[in-house]
Amino acid sequence: MPIIEDVRQIIASHGKLPVDVATLADDADLYAAGLSSFASVQLMLALEERFDIEFPETMLNRKTFSSIGAISSAVAELAPDEQVA
């Protein structure tokens, strides 16, 4: 499955968003959509588990988790063998 689809699924189950993830564009601002900092950590943990990666300190910031596209690029950087799209 392409990374971005996995990311969408994980956001749907761990992002605790008040809106349906399917309605969000890849570049939509997840914080504006209601992503809390607590949910973003749970999202990180789920992503680390699913892709067997570890986010380095430099990626642990708001920007990395600001949109579905940004998260997917970060994952793609850490898991080069995964299919991007």
Partner: peptide, 13 residues
Amino acid sequence: GNTSTMLLVHKQD
């Protein structure tokens, strides 16, 4: 509580 959540992913230097 907030710090403990961050420490689930952030590794202290």
